[in-house]
């Protein structure tokens, strides 16, 4: 995880309906992703790049169980989500999709546009723009393994193939 990405910083309570608007839940993932956060920041879906980092305050992903919420972020290129706290199902869904979701108490110290390098295993966020290093809660080993395998289903397949 040595690549750096641009930070997209939002506030508290970024919910699943903002990330994956219901009207687009029935179409393709591409179309849904194009409308990700449209009611909050229409520029986000147009401008986000591969490897960028999504940063929020408390309760990121509160609301629906729709896995399409983290999936839309992932499809747009987001590779890591950082927040002070997460909605439980969103947190689980992100990890199940193989996308690290990390609890970081200091997301206020990150500005939109900062370059971040995140080490999910060590629980370290390097802000290359400000020069600061922020601590985040590291993922426990079993989740690191699952994320490295690409998520819950690939992980399960690997385990089943290994006869465990």
């Amino acid at each position: 995880m040595s690549e750096s990405g641009r930070a997209w910083v939002y506030g508290d309570g970024i919910n699943t309906d903002l990330l994956a608007p219901a009207a687009y839940l029935k179409g393709s993932m591409e179309e849904l992703a194009a409308h990700c956060l449209q009611d909050l920041d229409p520029d986000f879906a147009r401008s986000v790049k591969e490897g960028d980092v999504f940063v929020a305050g408390d309760n990121l992903g509160i609301g629906s169980s729709r896995e399409q919420a983290p999936q839309a972020l992932q499809m747009l290129g987001i590779r890591t989500v950082l927040a002070k706290s997460f909605g439980r199902i969103f947190y689980r869904n992100a990890l199940n999709l193989g996308m690290p979701a990390l609890v970081c108490a200091d997301t206020d110290r990150i500005r939109s546009g900062d370059r971040l390098r995140v080490d999910a295993t060590a629980g370290v966020v390097e802000n290359l723009t400000s020069g600061e290093t922020l601590a985040c809660e590291s993922l426990p080993p079993h989740l690191v393994e699952m994320v490295a395998d690409g998520g819950l289903i690939p992980h399960l397949k690997k385990k089943l193939a290994g006869g465990r």
């Binding site: 629906s64 169980s65 199902i89 869904n93 399960l156």
Partner: peptide, 19 residues
């Protein structure tokens, strides 16, 4: 009783269990 995402829906269909 609680909600799950689609990966877990598949997991439950396949194994009748959840982690």
């Amino acid at each position: 009783a609680h909600g799950i995402g689609t990966s877990e829906v598949e997991h439950v269909l396949a194994t009748q269990c959840l982690l």
